[in-house]
Amino acid sequence: MKLLRFIEFFRARLRATVGVCLALLALLVVVDAIPGVVDKEHAHTAPEHWPAFWAVFGFIGCAILIILSKAFGHAGIMTREDYYDE
């Protein structure tokens, strides 16, 4: 099964894979900051013109969602699985 071997290939080289991914992310942010490449004329608000705005938005948004959701869940919303059983 070729697909399995393909996945295993990256898992075996996890450190390198993660490194390449992070480099690509950095490249993405840099490219976004070059006005000639990414035309921000159509952006609707001022903050969207800041470099890496959406990267920060994604990163912090995700962290906030995880932390607040879990806090909400552990405040009594998450309960044992047989809660509704007789």
Binding site: W54, C62, I77, M78
Partner: peptide, 30 residues
């Protein structure tokens, strides 16, 4: 394209950083 890729890929970074917090728990939610 740039907006979407930045937002989603950095979400992924955040996900892997908070992976421990997201470990599944055998619960139901009210």
């Amino acid at each position: 394209l740039s907006e979407t890729l930045q937002m989603l890929l950095f979400t992924a970074v955040s996900f892997f950083l908070f992976l421990k917090k997201l470990e599944p728990e055998p619960t139901i939610s009210l």
